[in-house]
Amino acid sequence: MMGWLAQHGAAALLALRRLAIAPVNSLLSLLAIGIALALPAGGQMLLSNALHLAGTSSAVPQISVFMAANAERRAATEIESRLGKYGGVKQVQFLAREETLARMKANPGLRDVIEVLPANPFPDAFVVTATDDRPEAMEKLAIEFRQWPKVEHVQLDSAWVRRLDALLKLGRTAVLLLGALLGAGLVAISFSIIRMQVLTHRTEIEVSQLLGATDGFIQRPFLYYGVLLGLGGGVVAWLLVGAAALWLRAPLGELVQLYDLTLVLEALDARDSAVLLGFAAGLGWLGATISLQQHLRQR
């Protein structure tokens, strides 16, 4: 067991030594891998933040029911009672037209416009939360409410949530696709670098084989080299994404504020960071394995 551990320790040290022997080459390789990984990792960071944003805003889809402008309060009370008893309705919030007017007047940008109007332009309204918030169920409710007397307009507020959801799905697919493509690129980079390493150390490989080395013994330092290369590239990608998050935080925060939302752009969390580093190390190992097996098969 000690001997086996010592072999691994020696192989890892040898791999580190080989990385350190040509620092410029190693650094450029790490940068190439890091930049390739930073793209999907950056996409994942933006997605996570978008998901967080969607989660903190009113993501529960609602239906707004607007009464006719000339409808009396009695009609609104009847609708409220009907809504309260309706099967698919979970919660009803009544917004009296006076209340809406007062809220709008509180907005400095709208106050002047509203004050010149001869009468309150806002109708009584209800915000309805449904028991089933699937788009088709919500749509069915909206159609039903539109038939009711004195109801002027029914609006489904779930549209933006669906749009955001569709956008997030698209983003997720794009990140996966990008990750797969650039991952394949990373395997190719690792393959080529390890191939060069194998050619550089072919005398050592030949001597080791003649002295009784197994394929595992011969492969080990190269596999560690591939893993270190991938891991190093992963660290570079993590740093790049972290720097980008810091840089984009202020302008993005200002942008989302225009939509009455709050967002502090966060870099990759612990789970995503671990996935990134594991993914990078795994791909480095895969590239090295393919390269070594091809070399050993040829012998």
């Binding site: 000690m2 001997g3 086996w4 010592a6 072999q7 020696a10 001597v207 080791s208 002295l211 009784g212 080395a213 197994t214 013994f217």
Partner: peptide, 9 residues
């Protein structure tokens, strides 16, 4: 090298 290959302590 031969001893490392053979897994000696």
């Amino acid at each position: 090298l031969p001893l490392s290959i053979a897994g000696f302590h």
